[in-house]
Write a protein that binds this DNA or RNA. Structure first.
Lengths: 343, 343
DNA sequence: GGTTAGCACTCACTTGATTGGAGTGCTAAC
DNA sequence: GTTAGCACTCCAATCAAGTGAGTGCTAACC
């Protein structure tokens, strides 16, 4: 049952209109507002077919039609006409992001803010997992007799630090030796790589067993709770502008999901596929998320997918606009991150 | 018009009941539920007086009474009986906070989470302004030819770092000299103190004019955008459990305020008075906040007020419980922060 | 055979009237 | 000063009728 051209036009018209107005769309409206050159009765016949095929549904008998999940899916895959951003808009996005391009955490965080602002939906950004980036610098800064600050810088400039208590008081020159050693042996590796094999190797290489034990101990404890799930959320407030969330209980369920970093995480991380992805309504398994859609794109550093940006909204989402914006931000983010690496 | 004992009892009963049920309280309810030994009619007379004096108000003629802002004020100041926390509960709070007592940012953030969890309202915590804490460490870490990481550690262990671009490529030994110099001259000062007088002094002291210029430049740019308003919010979701926010528009207004760090900031910072503070309804000037109350307490490091913790809820808030919890968390936070300083 | 006008029908939503109940204020008696 | 009794007010829930948007079906049209 491939859809003929007129059915496609009608499905497109209904979807666009519903996205716009949030009201079920009737045959008269279509005939009047979108000049298809046929009468409401004809449209009614086509609509009945589309409903039979599962693309449309009716909230109740005497109401207009709204797209089903399948309808949206077809719309997204085949019907919609993604909005083009003007050069000016693209420039603005670029500028806005570039403003904080030195501090990587803020760049990522800023992407979330910008995405929410532009899309007027809730945005979500997963920051790169620092355990899988190349260590640029790993250094201890002495604080006092019993404490050091472990500073980790991961390409292209993500910084994390932890205060670690030492097992015994350390002399400055001991810390210096550790630092020298770290910079010799760890630069370019990944945190995830600092496994037991390397540890053994390091131990063999340095003659000061005691010092090495202490060093590795510090490292282990300092790196143990490096944040691995780093999810930024922004623009939750936009949820409240959607008529589908006028019911406070729906919002509550949704916010409960959004509040839980872990849930968010497996909402997004299912596949770090490169490119743009749209998940519609029930395609999403997650409880309480079945009236929502998710538009995500991955971003990369030097061709390697490291994170995702996305937008959450009702299934009745302005896909044409959102897809474009998400794509644009992911691209810019990739560029800025890759650029930063090169300097 | 000092309230006699019976009037106080009635006001207290009405307030407690209303806090509990969110329904206007009638004379019969009071007579039945709180054994004052008088009939509803008598209570009605007293209620009429209390309304005349502004302690109570009536949503409409044929409804029960609810406390006015003035009523709540009197309740908070003179009537309520703050809940005692059990030793067990206090221990739990202490433990929960101690779990992250090394990383100060997380300690502060954790306080917000805990406060929201325990109070079941929205919590807010203002972190110390790093510009006014004693510098424990200020150090540059070389990243590459053109970039260094400026790491700032402020007592008792707040860490911030910024990547700064250098004006010219720096040699490692130059950075080492800068670091030596920083640690000699800046330890114990406040960021806010690094003003022009000190700069002049430093310049005079070191003979390498070029290097110093570079160093001060780095410092200036790195410290310029140290976060000064650092506000943590948690438990916004609890707002939705309050019947007064069943109307989506009220929530929207409120969330708009809470979303704006700056607004939050001047909501709290009006006075860094030590001790607990309760702001009720219209006592709060802030637009859209006039149906809310705010219970805050300041916390200290070594006797010096550095920040605030607080709870936001409807004026119909469970003051007896909230006051106790806020107080307890502020106290524990103070202790942990001061402790950390001592080690 | 596809298209369309016409028409009966469905169903949510609005409006207005009715009712029940919770609560009050007032008065008169205790 | 306290209380029982009573008339009164007003909200909230319920119901019936009317309205209007939209449909499906049929029969006529091109």
């Amino acid at each position: 049952m491939p859809l003929n051209e007129r059915k496609r036009q009608i499905l497109r018209a209904i979807t666009n209109d519903y996205i716009d107005t949030a009201e079920p769309v009737g045959s008269r409206t279509i005939a009047r507002r979108y000049g298809l050159g046929v009468s409401p009765a004809t449209i009614r016949n086509e609509m009945a077919d589309l409903e039979e095929d599962g693309y449309l549904q009716q909230p109740h008998t005497s109401a207009g039609r709204i797209p089903s999940d399948k309808g949206y899916r077809f719309y997204v895959d085949a019907l919609m006409d993604p909005e083009e951003l003007s050069v000016e808009e693209i420039r603005k996005i670029r500028e806005a992001l570039r403003a904080e391009h030195r501090q990587m955490e803020e760049l990522v965080h800023g992407s979330a803010r910008l995405l929410a602002l532009l899309s007027q939906y809730t945005s979500i950004v997963v920051a790169p997992d620092l355990r899988f980036g190349a260590i640029r610098r790993l250094q201890l800064i002495p604080l006092d007799e019993w404490h050091v600050l472990l500073v980790l810088v991961v390409d292209p400039g993500f910084v994390q630090s932890r205060i670690v208590e030492t097992l015994r008081p350390l002399q400055l020159h001991e810390i210096a030796r550790m630092n020298h050693f770290f910079s010799q042996r760890l630069s370019g590796l990944m945190v995830a790589d600092i496994g037991s094999s390397l540890v053994g190797e390091m131990r063999a290489e340095v003659n000061d067993e005691v010092l090495m034990t202490e060093a590795l101990n510090l490292l282990a404890r300092g790196l143990r709770d490096i944040k691995k799930e780093n999810v930024f959320l922004d623009g939750t407030i936009h949820l409240f502008n959607q008529p589908e969330f006028r019911d406070i209980n729906k919002v509550k369920v949704l916010l409960n999901v959004l509040d839980d970093e872990k849930m968010l995480w497996d909402l997004l991380s299912d596949a770090f596929i490169s490119g743009i992805q749209v998940t519609i309504g029930r395609e999403n398994q997650h409880e309480g998320f079945q009236d929502c859609s998710l538009v995500t794109a991955s971003y990369e550093i030097d061709g390697q997918v490291v994170g995702k940006v996305g937008v959450i909204g009702p299934t009745r989402m302005d896909y044409e606009r959102v897809v474009t914006i998400v794509e644009c931000i992911a691209m810019n983010l990739s560029e800025l991150l890759s650029d930063a690496r090169r300097h």
